[in-house]
Design a protein around this nucleic acid. Structure first.
Length: 215
DNA sequence: CGGCTGATGATCT
DNA sequence: GATCATCAGCCGG
């Protein structure tokens, strides 16, 4: 709809294997741009292109894992490819992909999707008809995709109903920016977006110069 | 579109 | 008791 006009959607999305996921957290955050998040629910198949991610690294003061494992963040310490879901501001679920080896706390936050399939169901879940707002931001993304705390710890590359799939069509250039809504280690360029994609979240000024920093 | 603000409750100290 | 990896609504340009 934006950068690349999708042709026909596939009958089945091609699931990613764990082996396909880069082992480095930043590399994974970049890799996931353009890939597809799919949720096969009882009522609909929901799918969207990942257009914005953030990396939360080992030793990163902004990371939930910075002070070690807790009840909330334990899924961050699972093998790469598992979901870490937490409740932000007491209300909104946020979906991350654990990015390292078992026992290491690191993850990639999925911040925005470009809806591909299941628009009607997504509108219903979100209570809006504005497609631009369906999955722009982590809380909205979780709402549109019907992701909840029940998915905390599930394997996103393990054959379940919520999974990561290969890109549908070409992926645009990736730009970097600073992460949203944090105060510690806030200047690090650990946010990644598909250049020019209108489904990304946050104010445009944080993306930097016109067109953003090409990387 | 950008900027501001109140609501909100889980989590951790 | 403080701190949030946020959102919707409102207002001004």
């Amino acid at each position: 709809m934006t950068t690349n006009a999708p042709t026909a959607l596939p009958d089945t999305w091609r699931r990613l294997s764990r082996r396909a996921l880069p082992r480095d957290t930043v590399a994974l955050a970049r890799f996931l741009i353009g890939k597809v998040l799919v949720h096969d629910t009882a009522n609909a198949r929901l799918a969207g292109r990942i257009v914005e991610t953030e990396a939360y690294l080992v030793g990163d003061a902004a990371s939930h894992a910075f002070r070690g494992m807790t009840k909330r963040n334990r899924a961050m310490f699972l093998r790469r490819g598992h979901a870490y879901v937490y409740i932000a501001y007491g209300t909104w679920p946020a979906l991350n992909v654990a990015s390292d080896e078992e026992g290491v706390g690191a993850a990639v936050l999925l911040r925005a999707l470009e809806p591909l399939e299941g628009h009607a169901a997504m509108r219903q879940h979100r209570g809006t008809n504005r497609d631009i707002d369906l999955a722009r931001g982590p809380g909205r993304l979780a709402g549109a995709m019907q992701v909840s705390l029940a998915h905390d710890g599930v394997d996103l590359v393990g054959g379940g109903p919520l999974y990561l799939a290969a890109a549908h069509g070409p992926t645009g250039a990736i730009i970097t920016a600073t992460r949203i809504g944090i105060t510690k280690d806030a200047e690090r360029p650990l946010r990644f977006l598909e250049r020019g994609n209108r489904f990304v979240s946050g104010p445009r000024r944080l993306i930097g110069p016109p067109g953003g920093r090409r990387t």
